[in-house]
């Protein structure tokens, strides 16, 4: 718990920004709610929180959190978040992105942000569709599914964001959760924030407007979802256990097993797939020389100028 926060005693309203304008029943609301409760429970000072996003339905999230926010460009949340982190080790950074934002237009940054492994929590709110621009296929839209850009059904098998992320060199935290199980969602965000490095959390998120019923099968048939459990995994209580009767013990340090769970066509994994505390942190590199004062800087520049003096 942050000492300054504890003294101030922040309550939920202290983290509530503008009234959310997502559609009723949107899965994004559950993520917003879990995030606000988590930062309240941790008493993170609002001024020390930066919520950064791209463009899309999910990227509206910063507007609804009372903290510092950056609602930037489509696909570009990661470079902005990395830039914030580069010279500000004191801030708590949460990134909200969507399947179009992260897995289509921002793909290059996705790969590199994971590799940089700078301290931040990424929430990929994956509803398998473009919502804000009104129902175009996204890279995660299921094959054959109708959309306005593919009226005959999406032509290709969707990208698997978990396998993609796990395959990136220096990945350090990869988890999946679902918007319809708030305790697991909360526990996943908590573990992600406490992990030092880039925590990648994919949230399977319902879009009642354009993808109504898309996740019904998963919700109705518990065998289609597999809860990954482990001492080093996401903390779960009995209610979560009960909701996910299909369970498997999985050591999150086992990358090969993580890839196998992530790619299993029989059941969607929920829980911590992979965690590596030993991964390198690019923020250690970018923070070099922080706090050098003006006098020291001028002295160093004078020395540099000596090299060019004739």
């Amino acid at each position: 718990m942050d000492a300054a926060g504890a003294a101030a005693g922040f309550c939920l309203e202290d983290y509530e920004g503008g009234a959310p304008r997502w559609c009723p029943g949107c899965g994004d609301l559950a993520v917003l709610n879990a995030l606000q409760r988590y930062v309240r429970d941790e008493q993170l000072p609002p001024e020390k929180i930066a919520v950064i996003s791209g463009i899309g339905c999910s990227s509206r999230l910063p507007h609804y959190v009372k903290a510092y926010g950056f609602h930037g460009l489509h696909g570009r949340a990661f470079p902005v978040a990395c830039g914030v982190r580069s010279r500000r080790p004191d801030l708590h950074i949460f990134v909200a992105t969507g399947d179009g934002d992260c897995c289509a237009i921002g793909t290059a940054h996705w790969i590199h942000a994971i590799r940089y492994n700078m301290n931040m929590t990424i929430m990929l709110l994956d509803n398998n569709i473009y919502g804000l621009t009104k129902m175009q296929s996204s890279p995660t839209t299921g094959k054959g599914h109708y959309s306005n850009t593919h009226p005959g059904g999406a032509p290709l098998t969707p990208i698997n964001p978990l396998m993609t992320t796990l395959s990136i060199t220096n990945a350090s935290f990869v988890a999946q959760t679902v918007d319809w199980n708030p305790p697991h969602l909360y526990a996943t965000l908590a573990a992600a924030h406490k992990h030092r490095g880039t925590s990648f959390v994919r949230v399977l998120q319902r879009c009642p407007h354009f993808m109504s019923g898309y996740f019904d099968e998963m919700q109705k048939d518990p065998m289609l979802v597999r809860l990954l459990t482990h001492d080093k995994g996401i903390a779960i209580d009995d209610a979560v256990k009960k909701a996910f009767p299909n369970r498997a013990e999985h050591d999150p340090s086992d990358l090969a097993a993580a890839l196998s769970f992530a790619g299993d066509p029989e059941a969607h994994p929920v829980g911590l797939l992979y965690s590596n505390e030993q991964a390198e942190h690019y923020d250690d590199f970018t923070a070099q020389g922080l706090g050098t004062d003006a006098k020291a800087k001028v002295a160093a520049i004078e020395k540099e100028l000596d090299r060019f003096t004739i």
Partner: peptide, 18 residues
Amino acid sequence: AEDEIAAIGFALGASYAG
């Protein structure tokens, strides 16, 4: 950075942070 876009995005993140 990984590309020109990320280079300026990263810069603007730092700018936003002061």
